[in-house]
Design a protein around this nucleic acid. Sequence first.
DNA 1: CCCATGACTGAAG
DNA 2: TCTTCAGCCATGG
Length: 106
Amino acid sequence: MPEDGFFEKVYKIARKIPYGRVTSYGAIAKCLGAAKSARMVGWAMNASHLDDTIPAHRVVNRNGILTGKHHFDGINLMQQLLENEGVEVIDEKISNFEAIFWNPND
DNA sequence: CCCATGACTGAAG
DNA sequence: TCTTCAGCCATGG
């Protein structure tokens, strides 16, 4: 992969997210070396719909809220995908967010 | 080149 | 503790 664009960097981290775990945009951004570009991470995730290897549903904001659920096919698709992995989601928010949070740096 | 937009974050009131 | 503001930077018009 000769071109290491911003997207590839984001995808690279996103693909590392373990099953049943979640992370935040800022954590990924920091791992990329652009901690201030958390918005870019989310924006890159928006383009991830072209790549089915990207578990975008495991990426939420720092509050553990599924801010990007509206970008999925269905309004509840993101939440259901997480629940399918054993993640407890209540009202668009991950209840045990801190418990299942995964740090990309690990 | 300038302006608008965005799945965010941290600080300030 | 909650709400609001400004900074962040890549992409597109």
